[in-house]
Nucleic acid binder design. Structure first.
Lengths: 186, 186
DNA sequence: ACCTGAACACCGTTCAAGT
DNA sequence: ACCTGAACACCGTTCAAGT
């Protein structure tokens, strides 16, 4: 809503987003909302007025990235090798999950709850991943008994395991390698 | 410490364990400690006197199960088919993770922090799993580039993904099937 | 229309006072 | 030796009062 509201409201909105980005990066997606309001120099009530839930805050920060991942999946559906395209997409999905600790859990929760402000963009992302999966299955490169929901759960699980590890990037890379071999048709 | 302390202390110890078991089962491993003390009919200070940390409480509830999983791994190292033995063990490991929501995270945290009261039994379990893994790798049935730490992270990640899902048992079964194929030598 | 912060109902954790 | 609960420093969330 740029330009539509009072200038002070718009300013607070932006200050809150900047503070939230920093807090989520430092403390994960369950960072203190009070802290975020404090960092933004704004009353706690103002935070709730702009962002009624934690998910609304996450949505504002992440919607563009999730949308980009959806577009990326659609773009990769044109790629020559469907199996490799799926691997590429999964890698990008898992890589993005490391920005905020707890993000895989937020995504899985949002997918389960269609009232979550994060639901729409996550579901659109899952659907796009599903089309990529369908194509790889149709080409006979990926096991036929895997659903889009399972694919997302798998990616989230590996990303979560990365979070728990000393070297998240290395762990995710290795687990992804195992998962991809597991998804392939024998 | 049965028989060693005052009878009232021993009684409180047992009441606390029973309350904790129920609370963890209902609300996950991050259930309210105050609630547990309340349910046990005991002051919050008494809970802290018997169990100085949440991990101490988990350890008391889970040590025997983790020890059993360690023994099970050693037993399975005698099985004829090393690859299948590993699959069996991983299944049992993952199945046990569903008792308390949050348990995979508690295990991964305990493995990372050697001051955790849960560390010893988890590390012993991981080591036993590692021996099972070594044998499967030596038999040429499992990829050589996988470590025991990665194996545990993988199992925990799949169990976590199960927790996030509508039907945890079905999800874990499917993800485990993918993971096992991914671990196999081509 | 928007902002503020006190208020409420919770936490985890410690520790002085009791038996 | 053990138990208790008030006390402290935090939460998330709501809402009456202000501008």
């Amino acid at each position: 809503m740029p330009g539509t509201a009072r200038v002070d409201a718009r300013r607070n909105h932006d200050l809150l987003l900047a503070a939230a980005r920093e807090a989520f990066a430092e403390h994960g997606t369950d960072a203190s909302l009070r802290d975020i309001a404090r960092q933004a120099g704004v009353g706690i009530g103002t935070l709730y007025r702009h962002f009624p839930t934690r998910e609304a805050l996450l949505e504002a920060l992440l919607r563009s990235r999730f949308d980009a991942l959806r577009d990326r999946a659609d773009e990769l559906s044109q790629a020559p090798a469907p199996g490799e395209a799926l691997l590429t997409w999964l890698s990008e999905l898992a890589a993005g999950s490391v920005t905020y600790r707890g993000l895989p859990e937020s995504v899985m929760t949002a997918l389960r709850d269609d009232r979550s402000q994060l639901h729409a963009s996550c579901a659109a992302m899952r659907a796009a991943g599903g089309r990529l999966l369908d194509r790889a299955q149709a080409a006979g490169e990926v096991r036929g008994d895997v659903t889009a929901a399972q694919l997302l759960a798998l990616a989230a699980g590996l990303a979560w395991a990365g979070e728990q590890s000393a070297d998240p990037v290395a762990m995710i890379r290795q687990l992804l390698s195992i998962a991809m071999q597991g998804l392939a048709t024998r």
